[in-house]
Design a protein around this nucleic acid. Sequence first.
DNA 1: CTAATAGTGTCTATTAGACATTATTGT
DNA 2: ACAATAATGTCTAATAGACACTATTAG
Lengths: 239, 239
Amino acid sequence: MTETLKEYLKHYDATEYPSVLVTVDTVLLTYHEDAIKVLLVKRASHPDIDHWGLPGGFLDQSKDKSLEDAANRNIEAKTNIRPPYLEQIQTVGSGNRDPRGWSMSVIFSALVPIAACKANVDSVEEARWFDMDEARKLKLAFDHKQAIEAAFERHKQKALYSFIPVYALTQPMTLTELRRVHELLIGKTIQRKSFIRRAEASDMFTDTGKTTQDKGRPAALYKVKSAVKDYRFVRNIEA
Amino acid sequence: MTETLKEYLKHYDATEYPSVLVTVDTVLLTYHEDAIKVLLVKRASHPDIDHWGLPGGFLDQSKDKSLEDAANRNIEAKTNIRPPYLEQIQTVGSGNRDPRGWSMSVIFSALVPIAACKANVDSVEEARWFDMDEARKLKLAFDHKQAIEAAFERHKQKALYSFIPVYALTQPMTLTELRRVHELLIGKTIQRKSFIRRAEASDMFTDTGKTTQDKGRPAALYKVKSAVKDYRFVRNIEA
DNA sequence: CTAATAGTGTCTATTAGACATTATTGT
DNA sequence: ACAATAATGTCTAATAGACACTATTAG
């Protein structure tokens, strides 16, 4: 006797199975004042109350059609913007990472221009941008420390063969600023000439014609050409 | 008034929240008879009953300490081996991918030597190795088609800058076989000389001293040196 | 002028691709 | 010997690193 899907669903009861706690958390990175910064939020509730942790929270089945939706919802709650770059990093789960039960977290990482969200972040009492150096010294909630490292490592790899890190900058930007972001991610200096050659080869940027005004020779200001997110170099920067 | 974690947990009831269905599924790949093969399982139950799909299933909180545990458990059930290479690919989730409710799947991908599990797979009625070409033509359960493509794409990228694909081979293996795996993943031929140069540079393989015996000149048989999983080339194969 | 920063010229080193050549087996 | 396959020799092209040099601003 074959049962139809309809009959099967009539008798199916999801609450029979022990539930899993599902959270979606995001490692939000930006560049400001010669440093890579990560957004942390002070937890207002148990567990790990009063510890700094990643912005995020439980999946909301009524609001979230997908995992990306959940990530964007939580990001917008803190920054009021939708990030120009969002990527899934990894999913962690275990029976003992949360005292409430078997818990998993889908970790995303986003790059945002700080100018677009600084005011909003400053207005949210419990959210703050930390220098990566500082963040690394803190005791964070759950396994969020490890999540930040995984996200950082991913962006480091991308810095070696792409210009994805540009999304951490406020446009228009100079190639020196962009190079600096790459240097901070990779952890070593990059030859100016090499970097400019790659920028030209990628054909990802347009010269706005404007320049910076500061001490020294003015720098050209560039914007990312629209619809170019994924240029990959065959040859990496040597890390 | 501050509530302690203990008090908080006393009143916390996980069943208050709508549960999410969590499955862990694995894209198992191997190399056999000049083709990349993927392991598919015929579903014995609703939904998508009788469709081919990925090996996997619901997270079992009593058996699985982590998501990797769940992946390994399901892989071992079909192949009777623990794969030499296992990697998390992505997690998908939405309210409408499964008629039973909001559902998510943590997708892993593993590479296995076919010799170690062929007999076991053959003994399991509902499991079969499919050529990638065949698998691409099938109508698969859930969004497993997309999961296979994501895994394949990941392995393709790795084939460009590493020798990770070696784990799809039964050792000892020849460099010609390994090159063929890379070619199938990348979708184009690779210069024999270039490939051998890279193999030498990686220092990942030891010559067993043995050779193949077939028509033509015998090929040297190699093994992977233990504890070398992550050599990365600065310069990619040009795809 | 000098200091500071942006941007270029040009050489070297590395390495992937191309492809001809040599080596080693079975029949 | 010939066919088949493995492995090497060697040239070229592409491109990242190094670093000296030039350019353009502020003061």
